[in-house]
Design a protein around this nucleic acid. Structure first.
Lengths: 232, 232
DNA sequence: CGACGATTTGAATAGGATCAATGGGAGTGG
DNA sequence: CCACTCCCATTGATCCTATTCAAATCGTCG
């Protein structure tokens, strides 16, 4: 990896507290790579040779089966993906493709496991990250099983609005096709869900969404911190 | 904890390789408790004071919302539950109740975190367990999003049949109401799904299921190791 | 035997998916 | 700058899946 990028990486939560020597060992083996949009980085079922750390951009994790495809999660900086597979030296359960231009740090799984074993601070950071990912997936499963399509969309919009500053405006960072897959529905059904939400103050114009009655929308969505709060 | 139970616990994967002193520290703070069926052990939203280790019996993890309730997972020995919440010192995302008589080891979260920080072998075991749990949940989410109700049931039956020896017989270890919640459907719909599978050699008699045409059933279910294989 | 809860069955409804067709930008090339 | 094209999104119609509500049946336990 080029030395000018190293300070950037060193500041990431995952690496901030580990010993210098351990960090060097990781970086010696790692690549910081740029990718254009829509590049498939990994394919489910293949062995997990690398741990990926999102530094810039965004990546879609998706899975296929039965001729269908669904989006599991959108990864934004700073988070890892496929950490569990890398730690266990097993096959990826998901595929990944870039959504936009991305910078991604790739660390050989074997190196990750070696440093994990020798550096306790890194081990703690790995567990913090991994347990966070676990909770994210549990929330996604609850979201999917406890809510219908309109409720999932409503909660998604409320969460994004608050993430984006709460000004009553949401800019979708993914296209509607992907959003539909993330929310577990078809694109047609997503369109209709937006239509259903119009009386609740949801105005759609391309990727710009205006929320004019967030109280009404929240009454419909019934958001729960144990599903929607990313920090909980 | 009573000393006669200690060897039993020491052999569990999670504790097998750690240092004696660390193990003692854990056990000094821990309880091995018996519970009758249908006891609610934890409630979602409450702080994670303990890590739970299933020693004997089984536990249902479930979540509520929107007036609905769904089963997330059935925990059997030997596995932990709510490990992620305990490690992060956060609220439980799920509630838990015993299904049958159970023996469960309860370790204060704080002790777990302390020993995790000081014993590298334990840290490795924790990560192995946690990453395994992560992958289980991802598989559950894929199962839910990529398959319809009948396919989920068919795959469930095939997996249980193979777990139970492959003799063409499956004994459900949970009642049908809970199975329906686990598979993400209503009890009524589960009944109908069994009906749909009758032409595929599925005969239901109470909790005893006979599979007489597993090849046909598998052709319908299209099982995938990346969803159905617990070891992958 | 009787009662209770669990399961099954039936009918009606709602939620989502599918198929088909239309509308609407964003980018390209003239 | 404008027309063209392509892809995405929307809309409409219909079908299928799953939920809901209601009632009947089954099994088990007292």
């Amino acid at each position: 990896m080029r030395s000018k990028d190293i300070p950037l990486v060193r500041e990431l939560d995952l690496f901030a507290e580990m010993a210098e020597a351990s960090f060097d060992a990781l970086m010696q083996a790692a690549f910081l790579q740029r990718f254009p949009p829509q590049v498939q980085l990994i394919t489910e079922g293949e062995p997990a040779d690398f741990l990926y750390v999102m530094v810039e951009g965004s990546v879609e994790l998706f899975a296929t089966g039965n001729g269908r495809e669904t989006t599991i999660e959108i990864i934004n900086p700073v988070a890892t993906f496929i950490l569990a597979a890398a730690l266990r030296d097993q096959a990826y359960l998901m595929s990944a493709r870039t959504i936009e231009n991305a910078r991604i740090l790739m660390i050989p799984s074997e190196t990750v496991r070696a440093v994990f074993a020798s550096d306790a601070a890194f081990a703690r950071a790995v567990v913090r990250e991994l347990s966070g990912r676990f909770r994210t997936v549990v929330k996604a499963l609850k979201n999917q099983k406890l809510r219908n399509a309109v409720e999932r969309l409503a909660n998604y919009l409320l969460r994004k609005e608050s993430e984006q500053g709460g000004g009553g405006t949401v800019t979708l960072e993914i296209d509607k096709r992907t959003l539909a897959a993330l929310l577990g529905m078809t694109p047609e059904n997503l369109s209709r869900a937006f239509g259903t939400l119009k009386p609740y103050g949801v105005a759609v114009k391309g990727r710009e969404i205006r929320l004019t009655k967030t109280a009404d929308l929240a009454a419909l969505a019934k958001p729960s911190p144990l599903i929607d709060d990313p920090a909980s």
